[in-house]
Amino acid sequence: MMFSQLESAVLTFPLDQRAALAQKLLLSLEEPNDAEFDRLWGEESARRADECDAGLVQAIPGEAVAAKARALLK
């Protein structure tokens, strides 16, 4: 089925069914599957490591981050 045919068919659905489908479609964009998540995180971690190696960013010790988070929650 071509996209235009699918779109035309879906637009004939009742409002509640279109809304449910729209919600599922939006959620599918927000939550990558496991393989996509692993690929994206691999790219992000490599980018962050490169930034650290190049001296573009400075690492913050986990203890300092935790202390700041606790202070913000008080």
Score class of each variant (00 low, 15 high):
residue 10 V to Q: 02
residue 55 G to A: 05
residue 11 L to C: 05
residue 71 A to Y: 04
residue 38 D to I: 02
residue 62 G to D: 10
residue 16 D to H: 11
residue 49 A to D: 07
residue 32 P to E: 04
residue 45 S to F: 05
residue 16 D to Y: 04
residue 31 E to K: 12
residue 44 E to Y: 13
residue 17 Q to M: 10
residue 41 W to Q: 14
residue 13 F to V: 04
residue 3 F to T: 08
residue 11 L to S: 11
residue 72 L to A: 14
residue 8 S to H: 09
residue 73 L to V: 04
residue 53 D to I: 01
residue 32 P to K: 05
residue 49 A to Q: 15
residue 58 Q to I: 07
residue 44 E to N: 11
residue 25 L to T: 06
residue 40 L to R: 14
residue 66 A to G: 00
residue 67 A to Q: 14
residue 60 I to Y: 04
residue 2 M to I: 07
residue 4 S to Q: 13
residue 12 T to I: 07
residue 59 A to Y: 00
residue 42 G to Y: 01
residue 19 A to R: 15
residue 63 E to L: 07
residue 25 L to P: 02
residue 48 R to V: 02
residue 23 Q to V: 10
residue 43 E to S: 05
residue 52 C to W: 08
residue 67 A to E: 12
residue 74 K to Q: 13
residue 29 L to K: 11
residue 26 L to A: 15
residue 58 Q to H: 08
residue 22 A to F: 09
residue 73 L to C: 03
residue 17 Q to F: 04
residue 1 M to L: 10
residue 12 T to N: 11
residue 52 C to N: 09
residue 41 W to N: 14
residue 18 R to S: 02
residue 40 L to Q: 13
residue 38 D to K: 15
residue 33 N to D: 15
residue 47 R to A: 06
residue 72 L to V: 03
residue 65 V to W: 06
residue 51 E to T: 01
residue 57 V to A: 00
residue 73 L to A: 15
residue 13 F to D: 03
residue 15 L to K: 15
residue 56 L to I: 00
residue 4 S to E: 15
residue 22 A to C: 10
residue 60 I to M: 10
residue 57 V to E: 00
residue 56 L to V: 00
residue 27 L to D: 08
residue 27 L to E: 14
residue 45 S to A: 13
residue 63 E to G: 02
residue 9 A to P: 02
residue 14 P to G: 05
residue 16 D to L: 09
residue 6 L to Y: 10
residue 37 F to P: 00
residue 11 L to I: 02
residue 35 A to K: 12
residue 39 R to L: 06
residue 24 K to R: 15
residue 14 P to Y: 03
residue 74 K to R: 15
residue 33 N to M: 03
residue 40 L to C: 03
residue 19 A to V: 15
residue 49 A to W: 03
residue 26 L to W: 08
residue 1 M to R: 08
residue 25 L to W: 06
residue 19 A to S: 11
residue 7 E to A: 13
residue 13 F to K: 06
residue 31 E to S: 09
residue 30 E to S: 06
residue 11 L to A: 11
residue 34 D to P: 00
residue 30 E to Y: 09
residue 49 A to E: 09
residue 42 G to A: 02
residue 2 M to A: 12
residue 49 A to Y: 04
residue 10 V to F: 09
residue 57 V to Q: 00
residue 68 K to D: 09
residue 11 L to K: 15
residue 17 Q to E: 13
residue 11 L to H: 12
residue 34 D to F: 02
residue 10 V to R: 06
residue 36 E to K: 10
residue 49 A to L: 12
residue 46 A to E: 04
residue 41 W to Y: 13
residue 2 M to G: 07
residue 33 N to T: 05
residue 70 R to Q: 14
